[in-house]
Simulated scan of single mutants.
Amino acid sequence: MHDHDNQLSGKRFLEVTVLNSLITVVEFLGGVFSGSLSLLSDAIHNLGDSLSIIFSYVAHVISKRKQTQTNTYGFKRAQILSALFNALFLVIISVFLIGEAISRIGHPEKIDGMVMLVVAIIGTIANVLSTLLLSKGAKHNLNMKATYLHLLSDALSSVGIIIGGILIQFYNWTIIDPIITMIVAVYIMWESWPIIKKSISILMEGSPNLDYQAIHHDLLEIKEVKCVHHVHAWMVDENSIVFSAHINLADLRLSEVQNVYDEINQLLQDKYHIEHVTIQPETTRGENEDFFYDKDKDI
């Protein structure tokens, strides 16, 4: 994980931001001179991307700060907030573009297909370069994935605009411009939804996707463990799982209990990739309760 973080340094973000800012200016001018809604919408989208990249980088830097007395889990969720903001921003832009596209279908406008085509080719090349610059980090980081999705959607949009430019230039099929805009907008919303869902789940302390039956079975396989109950699992960010549980043991000495702790920690970290484990030892208290407590308020 740290290697990926190093690759996503300030220099990498600066390169992508500058590249996107240039694309924005070129596409905005191209959209004005050609009359293409898809180019103008892509220019607005690229402007949002530039702001998104800056926002993502700031969140990335904040997330690296050490934990403090007021933030005992650190600042990792800055990246989750950034991912949620970026994905929601994409959806809002997409809704706006669909509305504009529908309006254009009813009132088509004259479009210069050649200008549209040339600008779209330039935009595609630049967007593909930007996407490649952030592609590695997107595999391991929800914040980077949201930013990467911004750039990928721009690249796809530019390809669509190229197709539209060809059809308009050679067949005068101007209706393709708003149609491409709507297709790209729907695709962006489709791809944004999993990021929004995952971000909200993490912020709402939703349980990570673990095999809890297997965890229960494995913990009971430990010789000294008689019962496991009052289990909680949540995520600080998409890579950091926190797990707490009450376990019933025989009336052991503290040094012996510590050995059980170590075995539980090793099991959960090695097999289930759980970073932070908190165990509350008990003898008979709660021994008849369920793995997940669901009878009354637990917290």
Rank of each mutant, 00 (worst) to 15 (best):
L249P: 06
K76V: 05
V26N: 01
Y171E: 13
V91W: 05
I93E: 00
I264H: 01
N259F: 06
L268P: 04
G10H: 12
L97S: 13
V26H: 05
T72W: 03
A214Q: 15
N239M: 11
N6G: 13
E27V: 03
D211E: 15
Q79P: 02
N127A: 11
I54C: 09
V242S: 11
V119K: 03
A146F: 03
K64S: 09
A245F: 05
L90Y: 00
H150C: 13
V184H: 03
S41F: 07
R12P: 00
A250S: 11
H150L: 14
M204R: 07
S157T: 09
W193C: 09
A245S: 13
Q269G: 13
Q258S: 13
G30V: 05
L252P: 00
F292Y: 14
T174Q: 05
D177M: 06
V115K: 04
E289L: 11
E289F: 06
P208F: 07
G123T: 01
Q213V: 10
F292T: 08
Y293D: 10
G31L: 02
I98R: 05
L88N: 08
K110I: 12
D5W: 13
S130Y: 03
N71T: 14
D177V: 07
G99K: 10
N86M: 13
L81Y: 00
E15C: 15
N71I: 09
V236G: 04
N141R: 10
R12K: 15
G35K: 05
L19N: 02
D237P: 07
L268C: 10
L254Q: 12
I241F: 10
Y212I: 03
G48L: 04
H60P: 08
L39S: 07
L249I: 12
S135M: 15
V186W: 03
L97W: 08
L29S: 11
E27L: 14
F170N: 02
I222C: 12
A87H: 08
A83D: 02
N172Q: 15
V159W: 04
A233D: 01
T147K: 08
I122L: 14
E238G: 04
G31P: 03
N141E: 06
A43V: 12
Y73R: 03
P108N: 00
G48I: 05
R77G: 02
F96M: 12
L90C: 09
